[in-house]
Design a protein around this nucleic acid. Structure first.
Lengths: 345, 345
DNA sequence: TTGAAAGCGTTACCAC
DNA sequence: GTGGTAACGCTTTCAA
């Protein structure tokens, strides 16, 4: 195999100037079709297929690469169905627009100077980033779309979590005034362990997703005249089936037994269904279970999950389109939709 | 916000030379700790956090970016549990080694000259790529690790699909000589529709994954004295729950009813479990179901899935390590493991 | 320990 | 329609 050639060497070989070769690749109108065809064909024969991204991007000031940074670790994110659906939507649009996708790892240490945030032409940020990665990205001055969090200076795509939670809780509580309600909550407090809340934990003005959902649940309960005390609310530190099962087992072996279980994610709700099955608790007859997200698995479980559709896929598409179309002032709030299936009629 | 500065301007502001600033970031030993600290601190204040990737990569000839190209479309891959587990393993190692991850879309058209394949220092290729993307990547002369396919000139990580399939089929067929066996196969022929095979379809020397698995099933059947005719083998064009359900429904409403169902992926097997449940066919009493892959969901279904663990996560880790450590001659074959759960005792 | 300068591969302006 | 050439931002050698 011959040594890799660069544009200059190709130009020499073909006995034209570098500008002409460059034009052949980038600006068809700048030369005769005939010459262009010759150049394209012969460079391919020489093993030259186009400019190096580094050089072109240095010169042009843009790379054709879009950076996506996820609040959770990259590795974990690949196991999260919601993140995957979002990525799927993003990827769909980027591929269609011939953009490349750089996955930035949101490391804690600022020391990891790879400078990767300098390459992309724009960013999609999923979830509120901790650390100074966020700041670094803002400093680049490049367009940013925030997904599932809000930042004054950037465009964003969000859903109304409070409203979605209110809707599903209202549905779950509608038939029975004397409900025993338990809540399996995600990331409600700052603890790495599954545990119940205490009453002080309820006072929080946080705008985090999980706090909004909790607020929605509690508002619905209040409207129905139901009370939910702090010890009926579980905190789950991470959206994993294993942790969720632990919490579900605690909740479903507590006394009095809840007959409505509001779960802050479908992963948690699915875990609850498994635990209920294992404990011979009939769903929905003895226990109503609700989820949140509407991940693909939600419609396939037995019983199928009643949940709130937050359109993660569409969210990804929209975020990507906003970024590419440059709507950098838009603050988009997507509709949520109550999806009633068997787990909570 | 101030205009973005470059290294040269930072050097001017700090009244040192560009080389000194560069050294402060890249070669701590080339200057006094004191000066270095001052430079780092003051550049951060000026909003300079390190070199632009394009420029550094142009100059140094390496970027710190690893490219991953998937045989299936990027968007689809995010919905595939096996691909996601692989990516999880890859991401784990790359983050740990402070490498960035560029996801290359395997577009069909060679026209999409984004030149993205010129940036990465190395590639992980998952599945046999169609089109000339593969050739382009090889031409770069950069290290490549092939996953789940074999190419003479590159390192690779594979499993022995024939053997894994043989093992699970032997297990499934061990108790009953008069088994009615059906196979739900993935990508066995070149058709976009779910359909049964005909006998001509059985002759194939292809080394594709699905063909190896089929060979393993058939060898096991032969060893047990069971015959499996072509019309008991279904072709499913894509590993999606929807398609799999169609095939499963066909198979489980055919006459004579199969009592052993060998599925070439867990996604397919899980679909089969759902269909069996819907048709009131008891698993494993009336119907034994086996999967392949051991995705996380396999252990969570009811009944839990008997399957072949192919260690997708570890596969990703190993591929990434091989690439980073530069073992470019290694051809690694990972062990598969039979995982017996309730769906096929 | 520091500074000047060459050059990485490309593009785009401006002449011809 | 075509060809010089400066500039993109940085690293690294070499000399001071």
């Amino acid at each position: 195999m011959k040594k890799k050639l660069n544009l200059k060497q190709v130009a020499e070989q073909l006995r034209v100037s570098t500008a002409t070769v460059s034009n052949a690749f980038n600006r068809p109108d700048q030369l005769s079709a005939k010459l262009r065809d010759r150049i394209l064909k012969e460079s391919a024969e020489l093993g030259y297929f186009g400019a190096s991204l580094a050089a072109r991007s240095l010169r042009r000031g843009e790379s054709g690469v879009i950076g996506v940074m996820l609040a959770d670790s990259l590795s974990y994110s690949f196991s999260d169905p919601v993140a995957n659906q979002l990525m799927q939507g993003i990827a769909e649009v980027l591929v269609e627009q011939k953009k490349q996708l750089l996955l930035l790892s949101n490391g804690v240490s600022s020391a990891e100077q790879s400078g990767a945030e300098t390459l992309p032409d724009g960013f999609i940020l999923y979830g509120a980033l901790q650390g100074n990665a966020f700041e670094h990205i803002l400093r680049t001055g490049k367009p940013v779309v925030a997904v599932d969090f809000e930042f004054s200076e950037t465009a964003s795509v969000n859903i109304d979590n409070e409203q979605g939670a209110y809707a599903i809780a209202s549905h779950a509580l509608s038939k029975d005034d004397s409900s025993q309600v338990a809540i399996l909550g995600l990331r409600l407090i700052d603890s790495a362990r599954v545990c119940r809340l205490v009453s002080e934990d309820l006072v929080s003005q946080s705008k985090e997703i999980s706090r909004s959902r909790l607020a929605g649940y509690l508002r619905a309960a209040k409207d129905k005249g139901t009370n939910i005390s702090a010890d009926k609310i579980w905190h789950i530190p991470i959206n994993s089936p294993e942790r969720a099962e632990i919490a579900a087992r605690e909740a479903l072996t507590s006394n009095p037994l809840p007959n409505v279980l509001l779960c802050m994610s479908d992963v948690i709700a699915l875990a609850a269904l498994r635990v209920a099955h294992e404990l011979n608790i009939a769903v929905p007859e003895q226990l109503q279970v609700t989820g949140f997200d509407d991940i693909p698995e939600a419609s396939r479980s037995t019983p199928a999950l009643t949940t709130v559709c937050q359109q993660s896929l569409e969210k990804g598409r929209i975020a990507a389109r906003m970024l590419l179309e440059g709507n950098m002032n838009e603050k988009r709030i997507l509709e949520t939709r109550l999806v009633v299936r068997q787990s909570c009629k």
